[in-house]
């Protein structure tokens, strides 16, 4: 009995720092935001204690629904593109790269060592009228005059895919590498061509990784604000910059908090859907 208690105490002590960290820096701020989302405010933007559902009622207005749709569509496009580009990259690294695989994975990681804003600013330079891409296109004669790429949806998507691609590659790679190559050989041996072996064997076995990749890209994509502002010109308001605006420009902290909680809800929903899908995929094994 005493030994058991001592072990419990040891476990507790070892867990304490991380639990404390999570509570202090994640749970507590979350509670504050949650409380703010029900609070009142005075005309000058100061938060007043109280309880009201008005902040949430405001969100069902058309404007906010459009913002939500904008965010959703941007996240969906980003997720789709990242999976479409990320899967072949992960497949190549897992099965074809051989000894170059660790180096390629490292290359995917290196950009993370540089500040996110700096990397996106680099894209502003690249995509600008006097940027490298325009210069190269003009020089090679593809176009006569620099074209305006900045401030378009395309530029936003380029930035989004650039930022989130590794999030898609890594989980898919992690799901592909443990697949026994003999399963693919077995597919070929039993009469399935490369495409059919992929569709019937490799892809189904890598689905957990694809689902994880979709989650890892979709959830943070819903909350971005820097990329659409810097590259897309911030023309379409999305949840991320709506929150920034509500907090900093309109000084409407309670509604900003309500939008934040809404975003959190969507992310939670995404994770929930992922868990359910994962359970179904795992049940196939």
């Amino acid at each position: 009995m005493r030994r058991e208690r001592r072990e419990q105490l040891q476990t507790g002590l070892m867990l304490a720092p991380s639990v404390l960290l999570l509570a202090l820096f994640i749970l507590l701020p979350l509670c504050v935001v949650f409380a703010y989302s029900f609070a009142l405010r005075d005309p000058y933007g100061a938060v007043l204690p109280g309880f009201t559902l008005d902040n949430y009622r405001e969100l069902v207005q058309g404007v906010y629904l459009r913002v939500l749709m904008n965010s959703f569509s941007l996240a969906a496009w980003t997720t789709g593109l990242c999976l479409l580009i990320g899967y072949p990259v992960a497949y190549f690294i897992a099965f074809k790269a051989g000894r170059a695989a660790p180096a390629l994975l490292l290359l995917l990681l290196i950009p993370f060592w540089i500040n996110f804003l700096i990397r996106i600013s680099a894209w502003v330079v690249l995509l600008g009228r006097g940027g490298l891409i325009n210069k190269a296109l003009v020089f090679s004669g593809v176009i006569d005059e620099p074209i305006g790429m900045l401030g378009t949806v395309g530029a936003t998507l380029v930035g989004m895919v650039y930022a989130f691609l590794p999030m898609a590659v890594f989980p898919i790679y992690a799901a592909l590498t443990p697949i026994d190559r003999r399963l693919m050989e077995a597919g070929a041996d039993l009469g399935a061509g490369p495409a059919e072996t992929f569709a019937r064997v490799t892809l189904p076995l890598s689905l957990p990784g694809v689902l994880a990749a979709a989650l890892f890209v979709f959830v943070p994509s819903m909350g971005v604000f820097a990329i659409p502002v810097l590259l897309g010109g911030g023309k379409d308001i999305i949840l991320g910059n709506l929150i920034v605006q509500l907090f900093l420009e309109f000084r409407n902290i309670p509604v900003g908090a309500a939008v934040s909680i809404l975003l959190l809800g969507f992310s939670g929903l995404g994770i929930l859907l992922y868990m359910r899908a994962l359970r179904r995929v795992e049940a196939m094994k």
Binding site: D180, R182, L183, E185, A186, D189, G191, A192, G193, R200
Partner: peptide
């Protein structure tokens, strides 16, 4: 001629059954 077009089938050492 690639494996999938040959009239032979293999029983693999580790069986290689499709787990899904």
């Amino acid at each position: 001629i690639p494996a999938h077009l040959r009239p032979v089938h293999t029983v693999f050492q580790n069986y290689a059954l499709f787990p899904h």
